[in-house]
Simulated assay, not measured.
Amino acid sequence: MKTMRVRPVSGRMVPDPDRGDVLPEGGRVVPKSQWWMRRLGDGDVVEVPERAMSQAPVANKKGAD
């Protein structure tokens, strides 16, 4: 099954029917199903490119040579 990474738009609480909880603000990988495609179409969530999620800032370690 194909997947995609989505996150809720600001101020929205979006249920995740597969996990039985609410989609976290940071988003998660979900199946590319009718449920999630509908949430995208309704503007409840946005799709997040995988590379954007993997580009987390790296902490600066002082004195690490």
Score class of each variant (00 low, 15 high):
54 S>Q: 12
17 P>T: 00
24 P>G: 05
60 N>K: 14
13 M>R: 14
21 D>H: 09
43 G>W: 00
47 E>G: 01
14 V>W: 06
14 V>M: 05
20 G>C: 06
16 D>Q: 01
62 K>F: 12
2 K>H: 11
63 G>F: 09
12 R>K: 15
63 G>M: 08
22 V>A: 05
58 V>Q: 09
65 D>A: 15
56 A>I: 08
27 G>F: 05
56 A>H: 09
31 P>S: 13
31 P>N: 06
15 P>Q: 05
63 G>W: 04
10 S>G: 03
64 A>N: 03
19 R>V: 14
59 A>E: 14
29 V>L: 10
24 P>V: 07
58 V>M: 02
50 E>K: 12
43 G>C: 05
52 A>I: 05
50 E>I: 11
33 S>L: 02
21 D>C: 11
28 R>V: 09
35 W>V: 12
11 G>I: 00
13 M>C: 10
7 R>D: 01
16 D>P: 07
11 G>D: 02
9 V>K: 07
55 Q>A: 14
45 V>C: 05
32 K>V: 03
26 G>V: 05
65 D>Q: 14
56 A>E: 11
43 G>T: 03
37 M>D: 09
59 A>M: 11
17 P>I: 10
39 R>I: 02
62 K>T: 07
16 D>F: 01
40 L>M: 11
17 P>H: 09
11 G>F: 02
42 D>C: 09
14 V>D: 08
20 G>E: 11
65 D>C: 08
10 S>V: 05
5 R>T: 04
54 S>F: 06
51 R>K: 09
60 N>L: 15
2 K>N: 13
7 R>T: 04
33 S>G: 03
30 V>G: 00
48 V>Y: 02
19 R>P: 04
58 V>P: 00
58 V>R: 13
7 R>G: 00
22 V>G: 00
23 L>P: 01
57 P>Y: 02
43 G>N: 01
38 R>F: 08
64 A>H: 02
25 E>P: 06
26 G>D: 03
40 L>D: 03
14 V>C: 06
19 R>E: 15
49 P>A: 07
